[in-house]
Amino acid sequence: MLYLDAGKYAPYVWPAYAITVVVFVWLIGDSLMRARRWRRAVEAREKDAAADNHERDAAE
């Protein structure tokens, strides 16, 4: 049996849980998006660098 009824303390208990969820969602989302953004930036710049090298070799 779960005691999900917080009674008269509900206005304090549930906002505390809601804020915890919001903060964790923000931390997880921000961390994952930051990692993805910079990984893609590295991949794009490596691709550009490889293309530049290829063009330089072709010109020589």
Binding site: A35, W38, R39, A41, R45, E46, D48, A49
Partner: peptide
């Protein structure tokens, strides 16, 4: 949760530095 998020953010930081190095080289 902290361990997981810390590792993810350090990875992002390593990639950010690599991206900046590649941008300077380019």
């Amino acid at each position: 949760a902290f361990g997981a998020l810390w590792l993810v953010r350090i990875r992002a930081e390593v990639w950010r530095r690599r991206a900046n190095v590649l941008a300077v080289r380019a």
